[in-house]
C-alpha cells in the first residue's frame, strides 16, 4: 500500500490464491480414488515390510475378528470367469442380469446358495445384511472351490490374506491349509507399516 493513494482499498488480491486452490482441487479430484465402502472393518497388524499392496490381479481373502471369511477379486473379467466356473461346479443358474450384478460386487462372504438372493437386495439392504462368511469346513469347503476357480480364470493373480489382528490363529490356519491343499504356498499378508527398530 503506497501512502499516496488513500483511496485504494486494503483488500488483498485473492486471484492468485484462487488459481492455486483450484489447481490443487483439480489435481485431487483427478487422482482421487474413493475409499471403497468396506463391508467389514479390519484392523490389520503392523510389520516392517515395505512392499506395497498391488491393485490389479489380486485375489483377496479377508478374515474378520469373529472368524468370518470374505472373498474379493480385483478384476471384473476374472470375476465373471470365476462365477462361470462356480456356476458349473455348484449347478446354480445365474442369469445374465445376476452376472452383471456379480461383476459389480466388490466383496462377499456367504455360501454360494445365498449369493443370488443377496444380489437381488437393494444397496441399502446389502449393507445391513449380516454376511455369514464363506464356509471352509472340511465337508463343505467352498473357499477352496472359489480359489480354484479364480486361479483357473487368472493363473497369474496374487493371493493376499487380510486378517484382523485379533482373529484367532485357528481360523487363519483354515485359510492357509486350504491354500496348501491347492498347492498355493506363496501368498502375502496385508500389514500396516511399522518403523524398523
Amino acid at each position: 500500500m503506497s501512502k499516496g493513494s488513500s483511496r485504494k482499498s486494503v483488500s488483498l488480491d485473492m486471484t492468485a490464491m484462487c488459481d492455486m486452490g483450484f489447481l490443487l482441487l483439480t489435481f485431487f479430484i483427478l487422482t482421487a480414488k474413493m475409499k471403497s465402502p468396506e463391508t467389514v472393518a479390519i484392523d490389520t497388524p503392523s510389520s516392517i515390510s515395505t512392499e506395497k499392496l498391488p491393485e490389479v490381479q489380486v485375489l483377496k481373502i479377508t478374515l474378520d475378528k469373529s472368524g468370518r471369511i470374505f472373498y474379493s477379486i480385483s478384476d471384473q473379467a476374472t470375476r465373471l470367469l470365476t462365477l462361470d466356473y462356480m456356476k458349473e461346479k455348484y449347478k446354480v443358474a445365474f442369469s445374465d442380469a445376476e452376472k452383471a450384478r456379480f461383476i459389480k460386487l466388490e466383496m462377499f462372504g456367504m455360501p454360494i446358495a445365498q449369493l443370488r438372493p443377496f444380489m437381488a437386495l437393494s444397496e441399502d439392504m446389502k449393507k445391513k445384511f449380516q454376511q455369514p462368511g464363506i464356509p471352509v469346513d472340511s465337508t463343505n469347503n467352498e473357499l477352496k472351490m472359489w480359489i480354484d476357480a479364480t486361479k483357473r480364470a487368472d493363473p497369474k493373480c496374487r493371493i493376499i490374506v487380510k486378517g484382523d489382528r485379533d482373529a484367532y490363529y485357528e481360523s487363519y490356519n483354515k485359510i492357509v491349509s486350504t491354500l496348501q491343499e491347492l498347492n498355493l504356498n506363496n501368498f502375502s499378508l496385508v500389514t500396516t507399516l511399522e518403523v524398523k527398530p
Binding site: K33, K52, L53, F187, S188, L189, T191
Partner: peptide, 14 residues
C-alpha cells in the same frame, strides 16, 4: 477421502 497410504504386504511361503 483419497487413500493416500496404501497398505503394505508381507510375503510368506508355506
Amino acid at each position: 477421502t483419497t487413500t493416500l497410504s496404501k497398505p503394505q504386504v508381507m510375503k510368506i511361503t508355506m
